[in-house]
Simulated scan of single mutants.
Amino acid sequence: MALVLVTGASSGLGRNTANALAGEGHDVVVHVRNSARLTDVGDTGRWKGVITGDLAEPDEIRDVARQASEFGRFDAVIHNAGVMYRPEDVTVNTVAPYMLTALMDKPARLIYLSSSMHRTGSTDLRRLAPGTASYDDTKLWVTTLALALASRWEGTSSHAVDPGWVPTRMGGRGAPDDLTAGHQTQAWLATHPDVTPSTGGYWYHQQTQTPHPASQDEEFQAQLLQALESHTGVRLD
């Protein structure tokens, strides 16, 4: 069985992903902003462990990485946490996944939550400054991060996932996509023994799609990694 970390797992897609993995017998560590967000009586008994921290705050991102290190090397890390149309979009959606990836031991598999809206994101990395990036920008950048890592670390695969427009708190009750299908791909990518392509995929409902061209451009990938390093002071090996 796999040891898996799921960020942003107090509700919605993250919670559904964590539940699915735990139901299959995997050891699941969940991250939540604070423990008060776990309101179900059976929550703590379901997980291998719980990590807390606000991914909108760089110091707390570092502490989340420290807490994660106490569990050893993960087989898979699912960077699910996200916010939409808030000043902290860029920190939670792009900076936190980058910092956690750089600060934690390299897992066997990395999965980053993207969105179809990444296709209208900007490649203007000056928008990394807090409060200046759109949601679409942040999803383009985290998709680019996922695909940049696909060829950088031997022994670690990396994928981006579009879960669809699903009826979660973020997506809204009227969202037309299938909620169950929304979490199945990331759970599958985290644990299935035979994923093709083995790394570098942009996935929607267990099928690969073509992402924004910039996310596959090696020059833009390098520019993004350099900009994130400069922005955070954290270097990606």
Rank of each mutant, 00 (worst) to 15 (best):
A2N: 12
L5K: 05
V6A: 09
A9Y: 03
A9N: 10
G12C: 12
G12R: 08
L13Q: 02
G14T: 05
G14N: 02
N19M: 09
G23T: 08
V28A: 08
V28E: 10
V29K: 06
V29E: 01
V30M: 10
S35E: 14
A36E: 10
T39P: 03
V41W: 05
T44K: 11
G45R: 14
K48N: 01
T52H: 00
G53E: 03
G53R: 01
D54M: 03
D54G: 04
A56N: 00
D59V: 08
I61Q: 11
I61E: 01
R62E: 15
R62C: 10
V64P: 03
A65R: 05
A65P: 01
R66A: 15
R66T: 14
F71T: 07
R73G: 06
V77M: 14
V77Y: 00
V77R: 04
I78D: 11
N80D: 06
N80L: 10
A81F: 12
P87S: 15
V92H: 10
N93M: 09
V95R: 11
A96E: 04
Y98I: 11
L100K: 04
L100R: 04
T101P: 06
M104F: 02
R109V: 12
L113Y: 01
S115M: 09
S116G: 10
H118W: 08
G121A: 13
T123M: 11
L125G: 05
L128W: 07
S134H: 03
D137G: 10
L140G: 04
L140Y: 02
T143K: 06
L145R: 06
L147D: 02
L147N: 09
L147K: 02
S157A: 15
H159E: 10
V161G: 08
V161Q: 13
G164P: 07
G164Y: 06
W165T: 02
V166C: 15
P167Q: 11
R169M: 07
R169Q: 11
G171Q: 10
G172A: 02
G174V: 07
L179N: 09
A190L: 07
H192Y: 00
H192P: 00
P193E: 00
P193A: 00
T196I: 09
S198H: 05
G200Q: 14
G201R: 02
G201F: 02
Y204Q: 13
Q206S: 15
Q206H: 08
S215R: 00
A227P: 05
A227V: 06
E229M: 08
H231N: 04
R235E: 10
D237H: 11
